[in-house]
Design a binder for these strands. Structure first.
Length: 193
DNA sequence: CTACCGATTATCT
DNA sequence: GATAATCGGTAGT
């Protein structure tokens, strides 16, 4: 199940949410030193958001200016600003039977550019660097300028590469929503050591 | 350990 | 005018 473009993202949003676990989210970042560095992490937690079938989704009530990327091509970044200070990053994905959908990236295991990210975010503990949707966008320097970017191009400033194969995955209810709590569309890699 | 609260603004009703 | 797919700090158990 490689990352060969749109085919990977043209499955049900749930399936894509599971399959994104273990993939590597890569940001080519200008840290101001005059050279571009790689910031990356293994995707370890995701949530699927549907369309008409999902009252918790931004797309539930149809297309608006904010969520229009969810209704466009799959395999793109859907980035939005929330609570006045955080960004959240999604990957658009849905089966041909649906008209919209996206997968929220909730957590990463940091891999590349760790010291750069920790100093820029003023984070002491690596465990607190990318363990939340608002934290990982800050660590990787992701903002609304990336909304709509294709994630398939390995040379792009923001893209997804193959990573690891997760040992074990579980699903739970999604975090921070009030509606559709019965849908267990949150997926995580189980950490056992 | 858990619970609550404030920050701060784009977006939608 | 109200809400929000969050976070970090503080207070309470």
């Amino acid at each position: 199940m490689g990352l060969s473009g749109p085919a990977f993202y043209s499955k049900s949003t749930n399936e894509v949410a599971r399959d994104l676990l273990g993939k590597k989210l890569v940001r080519i970042f200008d840290d101001g030193s005059g050279k571009l560095i790689r910031l990356s992490g293994i995707i370890s937690e995701t949530e699927a958001y549907g369309s008409k079938d999902d009252p918790a989704s931004h797309a539930f009530n149809g297309m608006t200016n904010r969520n229009s990327v969810m209704f466009g091509d799959v395999g793109k970044a859907y980035v939005y600003f929330i609570y006045g200070l955080h960004h959240c990053m999604n990957v658009t994905a849905h089966s041909p039977a649906h008209d919209a959908g996206a997968v929220l990236i909730r957590s990463l295991i940091p891999k590349e550019g760790i010291s750069s990210m920790m100093s820029r975010c003023n984070v002491q503990n690596i465990l607190n660097l990318t363990n939340g949707p608002g934290k990982l966008t800050r660590a990787l320097g992701i903002n609304r300028s990336h909304n709509g970017l294709s994630l398939s191009d390995r040379k792009s400033l923001l893209h997804i590469e193959d990573g690891i194969k997760p040992d074990k995955v579980v699903s739970t209810a999604r975090i921070g929503i009030s509606r559709a709590r019965e849908k267990h569309w949150r997926y995580l890699i189980v950490d056992h050591r």
